[in-house]
Design a protein around this nucleic acid. Structure first.
Lengths: 224, 224
DNA sequence: ATTTAATGTTTACGTTGTCAACATTCTTTT
DNA sequence: AAAAGAATGTTGACAACGTAAACATTAAAT
């Protein structure tokens, strides 16, 4: 007999666990996530979560998958808003990618953490990654068709763009405990990170410059 | 009384623990690193490691610090080898960064994992990062002085270059369980990663193109 | 009304990180 | 050479975790 008045069936335990886990991850990080603690918070026994998730890892995979779907939705909307302006769409999607990730830093980090997630065991994670990447590849395809981009393999340019966005985002997140106000000393690393944090649009624009057939086009979007 | 013939004093336990931990991390990842298991391997009691490291986290920080120092050494040597050719030095250091990281993927990942390491608690980690970054900033400074690079803030360009190298490296590492032979299906994500793995030099060259005052200079180093 | 399935609970195990107190031996000081 | 101090071990203990197996309750299906 539990010590609460909650009926025997929780009724929405799976959803509760995912939401509570997202809150915990956002506040305390993945390292201290504990199924037992989530079960206590839900007011159920410590092994009840195992009725909804085979393992702790399964819960984490579900959270990462959901994050991919949300990120994809955000990128699709951003791409659609830019209409026919391919360069604008690429810039906006880059900015949106970073904004979304930086609004959910722990979940973003988690989603690419091979210590926490085995993509081979979770095809839905592979599909989620594919969906997000397809927004980027579609825009690179358009850019190639229009002659906007240099004549390089689409996958190389899409891969580099993704790697750059991922790199900026990851570096900012890994230093996320340090706010811009704290970054007051004059260490070069700190100044570089401050630039990435405060003017990510400029960094993204500079990165995209490498893909442009006419690099001067970027000057309409950033002072480069 | 232990069940071995080892004298009471191990004699080199700290060094043993660091080396054994590096081997373990390289083979099985950070998630399953256990001080008790390392103590067993060393033939000492399970709390002996706490005479050399205040916490498990202290051991991990020591490993990351050592990695930074080794990476710095590698970058300094690579930069020196290129002599006066700044563009070549930047390209070579980019390649060296990736090569070194990809030869030690789990330690590289660990070194930037904010879930494992609190840089504020370990100033030696901050110094290690500063040292490595200084190789990059020195090269960017030279490039600016020579008129090789566009007229942008040094820290922005150095930050972007670092972020790009970090992004490529991190993405390749997070998919490191998938070898190029396995990447045989035609998913765009897989093709992009394959490109990053097989021709990192091209990706680095393409990225550096964005910083060059004369982008055509990169054609001497890659078919772009 | 009965059966099945979903979703809870209880009991248990092995493992972990870490603490405090004590033990041994190496180094330093007198 | 002896004593004191420091370094580095050991032992006993605690609280917590993830997970498994067996059992219990109730919601849904037949």
């Amino acid at each position: 007999m539990t010590n609460t008045d909650r009926p025997y069936h929780h009724g929405g335990l799976r959803q509760f666990l995912m939401e509570a886990a997202c809150r915990h991850i956002g506040q305390c990080g993945i390292e201290s996530l504990s199924l037992r603690a989530l079960a206590r918070e839900a007011g159920v026994s410590q092994t009840a979560p195992y009725r909804h998730f085979k393992t702790k890892s399964s819960l984490i995979a579900a959270i990462a998958t959901e994050f991919f779907l949300q990120l994809h939705e955000c990128l699709e909307q951003t791409s659609a808003k830019a209409g026919d302006n391919t360069l604008q769409a690429i810039l906006d999607c880059g900015q949106a990618y970073m904004n979304y990730a930086l609004a959910n830093p722990e979940r973003y980090k988690l989603t690419f953490d091979s210590a926490q997630l085995d993509y081979d065991q979770h095809p839905e994670l592979q599909r989620g990654g594919d969906m997000c990447f397809s927004v980027i590849t579609n825009l690179i395809d358009r850019g190639l068709e229009e002659g906007l981009l240099i004549d390089q393999p689409m996958h190389s340019m899409a891969g580099l763009l993704w790697a750059t966005l991922h790199g900026i985002t990851s570096l900012v997140i890994s230093q996320s405990g340090v706010s811009p106000e704290d970054l007051s000393d004059d260490r070069p690393v700190v100044k570089a990170l401050k630039g990435l944090i405060e003017k990510p649009g400029d960094s993204i624009a500079l990165a995209i410059r490498s893909l442009l057939r006419d690099p001067s086009l970027i000057q309409q979007h950033a002072r480069l």
